[in-house]
Computed example of a mutant assay.
Amino acid sequence: MSTRPTPQGLGFGAAVIANLYTEVPEEQAHEAVAAAWERGIRYYDTAPHYGLGLSERRLGAALREHPRDEYLISTKVGRRLEPAADGGGDDLANGFAVPATHRRVWDFTADGIRRTLDAGLERLGLDRVDIVYLHDPDDHAEQAFREGYPALEKLRAEGVVGAIGAGMNQAEMLTRFVRDTDVDVVLCAGRYTLLDQSARTELLPAALAKGTSVVVGGAFNSGLLADPRPGSTYNYTEAPGELLDRALRMKAVAERHGISLRAAALAFCAAHPAVTSVLVGARSAAEVHDCADQFATPVPEAFWQELRETGLLEEPS
Results as ranks from 00 to 15, higher is better:
F108D: 07
D86L: 08
L312K: 11
G89D: 06
D290F: 07
A264S: 03
P300I: 04
E238P: 06
E202P: 00
A247F: 03
P7S: 08
D111L: 03
L134M: 10
K210P: 00
D136I: 02
Y44A: 01
D69E: 13
F295E: 07
V16T: 13
L81W: 08
V280R: 01
G231C: 03
H272V: 09
G51A: 15
G148W: 04
K210I: 04
A29L: 13
R249C: 00
R283E: 13
R200M: 14
P5K: 10
V77G: 09
I113G: 04
L195F: 11
G211M: 07
T212R: 02
L92H: 02
L313P: 04
L225T: 12
A18M: 10
A144Q: 04
I17H: 06
W304A: 11
I17S: 09
A247I: 01
L92S: 12
V77E: 03
D90F: 02
A206H: 09
V215T: 06
A141R: 15
I164M: 08
M250W: 04
A18T: 09
E314K: 14
A264N: 07
D245L: 07
T22L: 07
M173H: 10
A157Y: 00
V215S: 01
D196P: 10
G40S: 11
W304F: 13
G13Y: 07
D90L: 08
R262D: 02
P298Q: 10
D290C: 05
C291G: 00
E23N: 04
Q197G: 11
N235Y: 13
N221Q: 15
L20T: 01
L313M: 12
V280Q: 04
R64D: 13
V33R: 11
R104L: 14
T109D: 01
D127C: 08
G95H: 08
E238F: 06
E287K: 14
G165W: 05
S317F: 05
V160H: 01
V160N: 00
R103I: 12
D118I: 05
G60N: 07
V33L: 11
E202H: 15
G311W: 10
D91G: 03
A84Q: 04
I73N: 07
K154H: 12
W304Q: 06
W37F: 10
E314N: 11
G167S: 12
D180C: 02
F145H: 05
W304K: 10
A286D: 14
M250R: 06
R114H: 00
L313Y: 03
D45L: 02
L152N: 12
P316A: 12
V160E: 01
K154M: 10
L248K: 11
A302F: 00
P5W: 09
L117A: 10
S222G: 01
T237N: 02
V24E: 05
V16I: 10
V215K: 01
A171T: 11
L279V: 11
T101G: 13
R128T: 15
V215F: 01
C188A: 15
A296T: 07
Y71M: 03
R79Q: 04
H272I: 11
G40K: 09
A296S: 14
E27V: 15
L225I: 04
